[in-house]
Design a protein around this nucleic acid. Structure first.
Length: 271
DNA sequence: AAGTGGACCTGCTAGC
DNA sequence: TGCTAGCAGGTCCACT
C-alpha cells in the first residue's frame, strides 16, 4: 500500500497528537517482518518525542531509543482514543495517555523494531542504504545522472530500488515516468542529463500531487484519522491497462519488470 | 558491484 | 455456487 505520500500523510495525521504523550501499555499480535528487539515493558512509561520519516519508514522517538515502523504492502496506522478490541490483523498497539497507536497489517510485511537511535542498531542498518529524499534540494538531475552512471537495470527498477532516491513505489514510479515521457524499459545509465532533470522534477511533482490528494487508496489505505486518499482517481497509467492514454489515446500497456507490474503509454513514453 | 529471483503472508477477484 | 490461479501499494537476502 504505502509509498512516501501515504507514509507522510499517516505521519502528519498522528504526530501532533502523540507527541508529548506518556506510553502506558503495549500489545503485540502476530509476528511482523522482524522481531521487536526489546521486551514490551521496555516501551512503557516513556514520553513520546518527535515522529520522523525517512523514505517509507517512520521513526517514533521515545525517551530511551525509539521505534522504527514500516507499513509493508498492506499496513496502516490509526491513532484513536477508542481503539476497541483488536481485530485479527491488528499486530501492534502502543497505548498512551493521549490515545492508542495501532498497526493493522493483514499481510504482515510491515515492521515495528526498537533501536537505541535512528542511526544505530536495527534501525541504522535498515536505513543505511537508502537514497536521497525526493524533496532534498540535492536530488537534482545532475545527481540522478551521476547515480545512474553505468547501471544497466531499467529506469523503472532503478527508481523502485530506493538506493538512489526513496519514496516512489510502484504506483508513483509508473506515474513519474509517464509525466517525464520516459519509457520504463530504458536502461537507466543511458538517460541524458536533460531527461534526468525531467525525471527528478517528475518524481517530486508526482509525489507532491499525491500528498495534496491524500495519497492513493487502492483497497485499504487510511490515514491515522481513517480518511481515504484519492490520487488513484487521477492516475494516468497505473492500473489502467487497455484504457486510452489521456494524452494520445493509445491504449495503456502493462508489462512485468522485476516481478512487478509496470503501466505505461508506448506512444508518449520514449527511449 | 550489479543484477536476478525467491521469500515473506493474507485477501480479493476473475475465470472456469 | 464453489474452487483455483493470479494478483496486490515493499524490500531484504542469497546467489550468480
Amino acid at each position: 500500500m504505502p509509498e512516501l505520500p501515504e507514509v507522510e500523510i499517516t505521519r502528519l495525521s498522528f504526530a501532533p497528537r502523540i507527541q508529548g504523550a506518556r506510553t502506558v501499555a503495549v500489545r503485540i499480535g502476530k509476528p511482523l517482518r522482524w522481531p521487536l528487539g526489546c521486551v514490551s515493558g521496555d516501551l512503557v512509561s516513556q514520553t513520546v518525542g518527535e515522529v520522523a520519516r525517512r523514505g517509507k519508514y517512520l521513526w517514533l522517538a521515545l525517551e530511551r531509543g525509539g521505534l522504527l515502523l514500516h507499513l509493508g504492502m498492506s499496513g496502516s496506522l490509526r491513532f484513536t482514543d477508542t481503539p476497541g478490541p483488536p481485530g485479527p490483523h491488528d499486530h501492534f498497539d502502543l497505548a498512551t495517555t493521549q490515545g492508542t497507536l495501532r498497526l493493522t497489517d493483514p499481510r504482515r510485511f510491515g515492521a515495528v523494531v526498537w533501536s537505541p537511535s535512528m542511526g544505530t542498531g536495527a534501525a541504522g542498518k535498515l536505513l543505511a542504504g537508502l537514497g536521497l529524499e525526493p524533496f532534498d534540494p540535492a536530488f537534482t538531475g545532475a545527481f540522478l545522472k551521476r547515480a545512474l552512471r553505468g547501471r544497466r537495470v531499467s529506469i523503472k527498477q532503478a527508481l523502485l530500488a530506493g538506493d538512489i532516491v526513496v519514496g516512489a513505489g510502484n504506483i508513483y514510479a509508473c506515474e513519474a515516468l509517464f509525466d517525464a515521457g520516459i519509457d520504463p524499459r530504458m536502461r537507466s545509465g543511458r538517460l541524458s542529463l536533460a531527461r534526468c532533470e525531467q525525471l527528478a522534477t517528475a518524481v517530486r511533482k508526482t509525489l507532491a500531487r499525491a500528498l495534496e490528494l491524500g495519497g492513493s487508496t487502492l483497497r485499504d489505505f487510511r490515514d491515522a484519522h481513517g480518511l481515504a486518499g484519492e490520487f488513484q482517481l487521477h492516475a494516468e497509467v497505473y492500473g489502467r491497462e487497455g484504457l486510452p492514454c489521456s494524452r494520445c489515446g493509445a491504449p495503456v500497456r502493462r508489462i512485468v519488470q522485476g516481478q512487478r507490474a509496470t503501466y505505461f503509454c508506448a506512444g508518449c513514453q520514449r527511449r
